[in-house]
């Protein structure tokens, strides 16, 4: 029992002693200047084309800024160990949350390939499928009339009847898609040229 009390008292004095040590003004101003400078760095980096590493660099800079805010403005650096533990354990929870979610997300294409069903990456595969169809269509066209120049349908290839119907009818969607009829232009409609490709 007495042990508990002494522990509590120790916590009291610990908190009081650490939290009330006054941070000098120049530390605040220095941290402020560093935060502004790092913001400038992030904005500058976003204009420089440095490829896929940009995201991680931006996040790294953001982490440094976060460290400055938490450490100096929020005084966590000189705060009680227990408060540090609480805060960083929350950070650890986030790390686990992100790690396990992304392990799932990243491994999904493999599962999809195995089971032959499309779950979330559907859109991408669909686009690739459409591109292939379009290519075949234009190849067939070129073979049929070798002298013809690419018409307006080549300028906007995504709007051919085949792909327009595809775009609104997901491959794995079991339910009938009511909009398919609403989007495909009817033969003889305003889209001159494209319906001919279908009738051929």
């Amino acid at each position: 029992m007495s042990e508990h009390i002494s522990k509590g008292a120790a916590l009291d004095t610990n908190v009081a002693a650490t939290a009330h040590a006054i941070t000098p003004l120049r530390v605040y101003l220095g941290v402020f200047a560093a935060l502004l400078a790092l913001t400038g760095v992030t904005v500058g980096l976003s204009y420089a084309d440095i490829g896929p590493g940009a995201l991680y660099l931006a996040l790294f800079v953001a982490l440094i800024k976060a460290g400055l805010v938490v450490g100096y403005f929020m005084h966590l650096k000189q705060d009680a160990r227990f408060h540090q533990l609480i805060f960083f354990r929350s950070g650890a929870v986030l790390v686990f949350m992100f790690a396990f979610t992304f392990i799932d997300l990243v491994s999904r294409p493999a599962i999809v390939a195995e089971q032959g069903t499309l779950v979330l990456g559907q859109e991408r595969e669909q686009v690739a499928f459409e591109a292939e169809l379009r290519q075949r269509l234009s190849a067939a066209k070129a073979a049929a009339q070798p002298t013809a120049s690419p018409g307006p349908s080549a300028a906007a290839p995504a709007a051919t009847p085949t792909s327009a119907a595809l775009a609104t009818a997901p491959v794995s969607d079991a339910s009938p898609s009511p909009e398919a009829g609403a989007t495909a232009p009817r033969p003889g409609g305003a889209d001159a040229g494209t319906p001919a490709a279908r009738s051929r």
């Binding site: 495909a184 009817r186 305003a190 889209d191």
Partner: peptide, 20 residues
């Protein structure tokens, strides 16, 4: 943009669409 279609001619409403 992925696709643009003229919708006026095609927007004749079928029975399932109306139900929807």
């Amino acid at each position: 943009v992925r696709a643009i279609t003229r919708a006026d001619a095609a927007l004749t409403v079928s029975e399932p669409q109306l139900a929807h």
